[in-house]
Amino acid sequence: MSTALVNFIRELYQSNEFIPLHAPSFRGNELQYVSETIKSTFVSSVGKFVDEFERKIEDFTGTVKAVATVNGTAALHSALYMAGVHAGDVVITQPLTFVATCNALYHMGAEPVFVDISTNTLSLCPAALSQFLQQQARIDDQGCYLKSSGQRIRAVMPMHTFGHPAALDELMQICQQWQLILIEDAAESLGSYYKNRHTGTIGQFGALSFNGNKIITTGGGGMLLCAGLKDGERAKHLTTTAKVPHRWEFYHDEPGFNYRLPNLNAALGCAQMESLSYFLAQKRQLARQYQAFFADTDYQFVDEPAQCQANFWLNAVICPDLRSRDKLLHSTNDANVMTRPVWQLMHQLPAFKHAIRGSLAIAEDLAQRLVNLPSSVPEAF
């Protein structure tokens, strides 16, 4: 399998050199827009490209209001703040995610509660969430609380793993039943749709990332998606240090965050948005080639859930067992083809090992068998 896979990937990318996991592609107006920004001298948080980038994201996703931030973690942190998460609160999320999901909670002074994932989405499982709440939570006129500690459960935060949408209708229904706010960690899912609705726009808040390895990049950057205009306007105010507009006075009416995306980064994002549809088509074609390669093998290609359209940000395959996973990882990386296991599960990290959790059998099983495959747009390098 390993040799055949290496040969297949090299044929896909027409390269005998090192093949990365996910490289950015600059095929359009990136250099022109960034150069224009430098010539204008407006390279920081003031400039036309920041507002334009927000408008492009609003138009593409259908969100009511998009607020550009310096990175995806800042977008998540802003979402949690806007959702009213306080120090000592808990937020339910999944153990199979990138650490930024939990880091944002940590910096709020809040704690994660880990609930298992679903095999068909790799995201938070509605059945596991419902069971956890029924067994370990109580609800009254004031809100939802953990029975064991009395801590307020403020929100549920699924992550759309590798760009595959979570089961949002079911999760939203549970959140409404238990008086919880749904925050979508959509960092990986720009261009992914759940029942024809863009991810990050179904919960009250969503967060995108434009890190260098995402489907489009601003070098570093993120975007807070808000379902309500009033929330969006307040979030934009807060993320620009809560400064009240004035021709010369510096007056800030409440504590805020210095999270505004620089114009230089936004210029890159505007150019990347012009190629997003092309990237999505190319990545879908790449995914279908991987799917065909793994057909009739013991290796299961991770496909998009039913009634969903994934962006296939990172392609993934589930190996038969841990031994075959490790063999695949060793063989491909030895051959200069980058593959990676999924992230270390959050409850296995020192910072979060004492977090309350339900049974995590599915996440623990898949973490020992899942491998990410090179997923760049083929022309990227």
Rank of each mutant, 00 (worst) to 15 (best):
L366T: 08
L122A: 11
D116V: 12
D326H: 12
I9Y: 12
V70E: 13
P255Q: 02
L345D: 10
R325Y: 03
D231T: 10
A292Y: 08
L322M: 02
I202A: 02
Q309D: 07
S324L: 11
S209N: 14
K147S: 03
K214Y: 10
N120F: 11
A155N: 13
D231K: 04
G72Y: 15
L122S: 10
R247K: 04
L345E: 05
L208Y: 15
L76V: 06
W248H: 08
Y251V: 14
N71Y: 07
H22W: 01
G228P: 00
F210I: 04
G256S: 04
C270T: 01
Y299L: 05
L345Q: 05
S35H: 06
E54D: 08
E17K: 10
L366Y: 12
D59R: 05
I139Y: 11
F49H: 14
A306D: 15
W178P: 02
H77L: 10
A87P: 02
V46K: 12
L238V: 14
K243R: 15
E11G: 09
G358I: 14
Q94W: 02
R10T: 11
L122I: 10
N265I: 05
M157G: 03
Q344S: 10
G84I: 00
N263T: 06
K214I: 00
V371C: 03
Y13N: 12
F301L: 07
K230D: 11
Q176G: 05
L225T: 07
T217M: 01
S376T: 05
G232W: 13
K230H: 04
Q291P: 05
A127H: 09
A310R: 00
G88H: 14
F257W: 14
L329G: 04
P158D: 01
N213T: 14
L180Q: 15
F279E: 09
L180C: 10
N333T: 11
A100P: 04
S40E: 09
N16Y: 01
R323M: 04
Q285L: 05
W313K: 01
L276C: 06
K39T: 07
L329H: 07
A87V: 04
S277R: 14
L224N: 11
R288L: 14
A187L: 09
A292P: 09
L76M: 12
W343P: 14
